[in-house]
């Protein structure tokens, strides 16, 4: 589903955010990406979502070499990648329903379809009763769940989350993680960047560790000597 081969990212000014990254994730796999802040977690996710492009090497997502996707085609690539952010990135002047509906509106779905899919998605994260609420009236955990509902509403094959539990207490964090586990179980590839070592060490998933822009440890590789 995701394949990095010798991928590097150097920002203008000469800062190396990622160097020679190699790993592969199969469809339906769930993995954590960890490391200190500044180790390159966010940059790695940005390469997958084409917010940034690799300076060297290859990034292949869903069989497609991202270097070959032109600027105009980027939106269509992003529609297949659900993204979840630490700061939720919700629109505060629209209701929960409208926020979750946005990816579907962008894809040009009909009114009826949008209603059905948005409610299904909100139901999954347990927020069906809040569809008419504005995000500002929700708690941090609820806002994050709205963000998740929006990321999965058009059933992307790949889900990226950047510090999704960054601002949440352990209880809520576990709750959010269990939502991700559910998606993984139905075949969605999930990659979660997180520095919450305590939490992810308790979960039975692959852990990719970044250190100084390099992939220093991959639990899947160690498991098979």
């Amino acid at each position: 589903m995701i394949r990095f081969s010798h991928a590097s990212k150097r920002y203008p000014g000469g800062f190396d955010a990622l160097q020679d990254i190699n790993f592969h994730m199969s469809p339906g796999e769930m993995a954590f990406l960890t490391g200190h802040s500044g180790a390159g977690k966010s940059t790695l996710l940005k390469l997958i979502a084409l917010i940034e492009r690799a300076s060297r090497g290859q990034v292949i997502v869903n069989g497609q070499n991202l270097a070959k996707i032109s600027r105009r085609k980027i939106p269509f690539h992003r529609r297949n990648v659900g993204m979840i952010f630490q700061d939720h990135q919700l629109l505060f002047d629209r209701t929960v329903f409208d926020n979750v509906a946005l990816p579907l509106v962008i894809s040009g779905l009909s009114h009826n379809e949008i209603g059905k899919k948005v409610r299904a998605s909100l139901d999954m994260v347990g927020l069906l009763s809040k569809e008419r609420a504005y995000p500002i009236t929700l708690s941090g955990g609820e806002q994050q769940r709205v963000g998740i509902a929006r990321a999965v509403v058009n059933k992307p094959a790949l889900l990226l989350a950047d510090e999704p539990t960054g601002n949440l207490d352990p209880e809520l964090s576990r709750e959010i993680m269990s939502i991700f586990e559910q998606f993984s179980q139905v075949g969605v590839t999930v990659l979660i960047a997180s520095h919450d070592i305590d939490l992810i060490n308790h979960l039975p998933y692959r852990i990719l560790t970044l250190k100084n822009a390099r992939l220093s440890h991959d639990s899947a590789v160690v498991a098979q000597p």
């Binding site: 979502a49 992003r78 946005l102 962008i106 929006r150």
Partner: peptide, 10 residues
């Protein structure tokens, strides 16, 4: 920015 992130075209 948000619309671009979730795949809105120009």
């Amino acid at each position: 920015v948000i619309i671009k992130l979730i795949g809105g075209t120009d």
